[in-house]
Design a protein around this nucleic acid. Structure first.
Lengths: 213, 213
DNA sequence: TAGATTGTTAATCGATTAACAATC
DNA sequence: TAGATTGTTAATCGATTAACAATC
């Protein structure tokens, strides 16, 4: 439990890990070092920011030498709690939900999608990859029984309201990754991470409008 | 062209719009007003932040009364440049790419996905919804001919490198929305917006680890 | 030892906030 | 007019940065 980690630092940690995974794959040599200026070039993040970010969690480098790729990777995995297997469910198995279930990179971060939920009888009782899909009526019981900590919400807008109510009042989840294009009102013990696509597109619109001119 | 808009302000603008769309749908009355404290409750963003964000772009409220829902919505659409139809393509029509093509909310933001690109002969020449899928060999020509300003990249990691090189050296795009789980190194006239799912999940891991303890 | 890069400091820069004058 | 809420200010808070002592 760390205190006072800047939000932006947390956003950057997965980026660091992503680059380290790449570097570790590319290099055969387990003893290979790299340094913060290398990482700056790869990520366009200032080397001093990188070193400061890491310093919140400990000292991972060797002065005059840099960081060992493998051991920093290991440290970051520990910080991000990747070594513990996590279970989650997808609520809403439409296009987005199904794509997430099939997403091939979750094994890398030890995430298991143990079930999907939907209302469409054509989808229910089928399996998407290895993942069973149940009727959404069974959602609350499932989450409680399996002690799921966070869910991925990928339902249409009109369905989100009553599902959210159930999640808040009848389960003990602590996090929602939200792919719906609306903002969710939740009590403050629940962390919502918005990942809706339109917002990213709109950010791009704004950027394009205000740099070409 | 505005200058010096804080990054976080730009992140929040789509959220404001999203809530305004909801409010506009729920209320029949075109003349309905609401105020920044209402919005604070819906979004957990302080009312003073909301007012300051809006103030970068003009004065949209009426003192003592609040904001007219419809006219603020209109103003935000103007700021985010939603009224002009945009065209883009999806590079990589696997699970994620296909889900994005089928995403139903893009009409709301005037986005048209005019083509998909892939290497898989099983996918090429089919249509996903109304969208044709071409071989990736045709990508560069297509982008140049259609004057596409930004692309959505949803290819597997191993494919991203050489595609990125083509995009940088042979086209005139100004933006990439990146769904691959790696960071893209681009010249600074190209804006990359990362939307990769694992990063969101890892953020959630970190949060769960450090609040339950 | 000389060279290099870390971890950390202190200064700068930017964003948030509470408060309130302006005004509908 | 009295009440309400905006738009804006100035103070506070937090994040970035350059610089450098520490040290491998």
């Amino acid at each position: 439990m760390y205190k006072k980690i800047p939000k932006n630092t947390i956003h950057r940690l997965p980026l660091y890990l992503s680059v380290l995974e790449q570097l570790a794959e590319e290099s055969q040599n387990q003893e290979e070092f790299f340094h913060s200026v290398d990482l700056e070039k790869l990520l366009n993040i200032k080397n001093s920011v990188i070193r400061k970010d890491l310093s919140y969690f400990g000292e991972f480098g060797v002065k005059g030498k840099g960081y060992n790729i493998v051991s920093l990777k290991t440290a970051l995995k520990e910080i991000l709690d990747i070594n513990v297997i996590k279970k989650t469910v997808i609520i809403g198995c439409g296009n987005i939900g199904t794509a997430i279930i099939k997403y091939p990179y979750f094994t890398k971060i030890n995430l298991e999608i143990v079930a999907g939920f939907d209302v469409d009888p054509k989808i229910i009782k089928q399996k998407i990859n290895q993942t069973p899909v149940y009727h959404i009526d069974r959602l609350v019981d499932f989450l409680n029984k399996e002690k799921i900590q966070f869910v991925i919400l990928a339902v249409p807008v009109h369905a989100s309201k009553f599902i959210l109510q159930d999640l808040i009042t009848k389960t003990d989840i602590h996090g929602i990754i939200n792919f719906t294009p609306i903002s969710l009102k939740v009590p403050k013990h629940i962390k919502v991470i918005n990942s809706y696509i339109s917002a990213k597109i709109l950010e791009m619109y704004f950027y394009l409008k205000n740099t070409n001119a």
